[in-house]
Design a protein around this nucleic acid. Structure first.
Lengths: 132, 132
DNA sequence: TTGCGTGCAAAGGTTTTGCATGGCA
DNA sequence: TGCCATGCAAAACCTTTGCACGCAA
């Protein structure tokens, strides 16, 4: 599938890269982009977000108290091959390289016949800081 | 806060207890109750679900690509301690009970300081049937 | 020039709210 | 009896879709 490099796509990507430490709803993203002088239509925001999620550059999930989906950048380095732990309390996204988790993937394939797609998983929980 | 014991609340609780192995959207719950002869208004379903969540009897979460919230009984054993594997090809949701996954949770807590909330995770991938 | 991408507005769904009535304690 | 709970319908939201026009390749 062809992929045009429009200025709207660039604006979204730049926004995520510069705000990779937090997650945002579609509406927040639209607002913040508008505040920066980049006005995108709602539909474009949603359509682009869907594609960025499909491409694996952005993760979609739902924070505990939020009513709608949140999006967060995860396209740097080797984000396809490591695990993501998302703290539902403070919002931090941890990037974990871990052999144990690779074994888990093998275990699931072998014992449950299920091929895990690591790039699509976000493991939710609470980080160390927030547990205190 | 007072808590009246209405027949609507009883109907909801009974439904969850008898269907603790799956999760349902608010709309599905409304439909299934109606099919059983228990017609509750939409608003009542939503209000009661909120309270059951507050009371800790029911969990609310969002399956990875679901459009709306899902609710699931968590007063008993139910789905609290097993994993959900979601096939991105056929859409089937598999429920997996597995000691190995408990170990994984312990590993993440010990080595990465992160307390996994199993009930909030949906592991995406492709099931056996669809891989063929 | 071709056909994907965008913006607008309308449609489709889900969840919340206001208000009068019903029902538990 | 005093309130909380319910039902209905409308409102408020969030997300998707249809269509004509704009723009990258």
């Amino acid at each position: 599938m062809p992929e045009y490099n429009t200025k709207q796509r660039e604006a979204l990507l730049r926004f995520f890269e510069n705000n990779s430490d937090k997650h945002y709803t579609a509406a927040e993203i639209e607002l913040r982009l508008a505040a920066m002088g980049e006005k995108l239509g709602k539909a474009t925001v949603y359509r682009r977000l869907d594609r960025l999620v499909d491409e694996g550059l952005v993760r979609r999930f739902v924070a505990d108290d939020a009513k709608s989906c949140c999006y967060q950048y995860a396209g740097g380095e080797g984000c396809k091959n490591h695990f993501h732990l998302k703290c539902m309390s403070c919002g931090e996204l941890m990037h974990i390289e871990c052999d144990y988790l690779d074994e888990m993937k093998a275990h699931i394939l072998e014992h449950h016949g299920f091929m895990v797609d690591i790039s699509k998983i976000t493991i939710c929980g609470v980080c160390e800081k927030c547990r205190k």
